[in-house]
Simulated scan of single mutants.
Amino acid sequence: MPQPAPRIAPLQPPYPPEIQGQFDRIMRGAPPLALFRVMAGHARAWEKFRAGSLLDRGPLSLREREIVIDRTCARTGCEYEWGVHIAAFAEAAQLTDEQVRATVLGDASATCWSAAEQALIAAVDALHERATLGEAEFKALSAHYEDAKILEIIQLCGFYRTVSYLANALALPLEQTAARFPR
């Protein structure tokens, strides 16, 4: 069954050489995601999106980064971006099936997570619910992460909340190769 089209039409190939080069750098040879194709069709939006500078590795490990991104997308109900990240990175980040499920259905105290990972999830949840970290949440993060990592965690939450807003509001069809939320 074909999925409905996004609310704003994505750029179609052939792409301008500069855009193709940007897609190649981000996607490493895979076809560009619908989200990227929609954004790239609008120069200012694409420039601002890429200027978020959070599409690179940063100071967090791949596992830490993916836990933050997956939980943020799950909390915002963004199956599109959550599914893309699970399909692309869960195995490399060594997330077990139980942990993948817990990013959507678990809470910060789930026993499948280490103490440091529980602090990450609690921080994501606090930022989602209250747009701030309480003293206990910040103290828990500080026990496991240096300041540069804490700043990256907060920025990732905000950036992927924005990504979730975009994917959800644009009604992007789920990528064929992406994972689906556990039920």
Rank of each mutant, 00 (worst) to 15 (best):
A5Q: 15
A122S: 14
G41D: 02
L141P: 04
P32Q: 13
E129M: 02
Q176K: 13
P59W: 08
V124R: 00
C157S: 06
F36G: 02
P6N: 04
E91N: 04
R63A: 08
G52D: 03
Q12W: 00
F159D: 02
E98V: 05
Y80V: 12
R75Y: 06
G134S: 15
S114P: 03
E98S: 11
A5H: 15
H85M: 08
V163E: 05
E135Y: 03
T132N: 07
R63H: 09
V68K: 04
C78W: 04
A88V: 10
T96A: 04
S114Q: 12
A92S: 14
P173V: 08
L35R: 01
R75F: 10
L35T: 05
W82E: 09
L127W: 09
A51E: 05
A167H: 12
F138N: 14
P32C: 09
I26N: 08
E137F: 00
C157A: 09
D125E: 15
A102R: 14
A40D: 05
L105D: 13
P13K: 10
Y160A: 01
P6D: 05
T111C: 01
R101C: 10
L11S: 03
Q155Y: 09
Q118G: 12
C157Y: 04
M27E: 15
L62I: 12
L141R: 02
A30T: 06
L33W: 11
E137C: 07
P13A: 15
R180C: 10
E66C: 08
A30Q: 10
G134R: 06
F23N: 08
T76W: 14
G41W: 00
F23D: 12
E129R: 07
I26Y: 12
M39Y: 03
R25W: 06
P10L: 08
A74K: 09
R75L: 15
S109Q: 15
Y145H: 07
P13Y: 12
E146Q: 13
P17M: 09
P59D: 11
A51G: 00
F181R: 00
L54P: 03
T72C: 09
E64N: 11
I121E: 02
S61W: 06
K48G: 01
A169I: 07
T96E: 05
F89K: 03
L55E: 05
A40K: 02
E117V: 02
I19W: 07
P32W: 12
Y165K: 11
Y165M: 14
